[in-house]
């Protein structure tokens, strides 16, 4: 689904791990491809957003309008004590964070973003004990709105835990 959208030629998109994955910046093992801006965004997410820190989120990679964020399994995230499955709300928080970061990484270099709306589909429970990773891509922007898709995965990458689609505000800085 993501690939099809990414394949539209008028969209400037990078899919995490996709055909243009060479542009992905990784933290902290491959700091070189990261621009000052993406590095700043990554640091911002890890250090400055209290709730991202609270849930143990780490930025794995940032590209042009793409982002990958991980959230390790933790007992405090459990939503079903009988099975140890993490709460859907924690997955939502992860995908919302990742989507916002993808908007901030868009080549139009927005100065701020906020979620306008978000639709989350829960496909299956995340496997207890496994880290959940979200991948988001900001696949289209208008003057003031960014459109984002995201998916949440655990170790079974072929079967997403959840997917999300949302619209975000886009506050543009001064034009280059």
């Amino acid at each position: 689904m993501f690939r099809t959208v990414a394949a539209k030629k008028d969209h400037v998109v990078l899919v995490a791990g996709g055909p243009r994955g060479h542009n992905r910046a990784r933290i902290p093992r491959e700091p070189m491809p990261m621009t000052d801006r993406t590095e700043e965004i990554a640091r911002h997410f890890m250090e400055r957003i209290p709730h991202a820190r609270d849930l143990g989120m780490t930025v794995l990679s940032l590209g042009e309008g793409t982002c990958e964020v991980s959230m390790p399994y933790d007992e405090k995230l459990i939503g079903d004590p009988a099975t140890g499955v993490i709460h859907g709300g924690a997955v939502s928080a992860l995908m919302d964070t990742c989507s916002g970061a993808a908007v901030m990484c868009h080549p139009t270099a927005p100065v701020a973003t906020a979620t306008l709306d978000l639709r989350i589909d829960y496909m299956r429970p995340a496997t207890p004990g496994q880290t959940v990773r979200a991948r988001a891509e900001c696949y289209h922007v208008t003057r003031s709105v960014a459109f984002v898709r995201a998916r949440a995965l655990d170790d079974d990458e072929d079967n997403p835990v959840a997917t999300a689609a949302g619209a975000f505000t886009l506050e543009r800085g001064e034009r280059a």
Binding site: I49, H51, A52, D54, A93, T97, A114
Partner: peptide, 14 residues
């Protein structure tokens, strides 16, 4: 710890 935007500040959308 519920803050998502420390600049405003605002609650995290998640």
């Amino acid at each position: 710890r519920l803050i998502g935007n420390p600049m405003l500040p605002a609650l995290h959308g998640g």
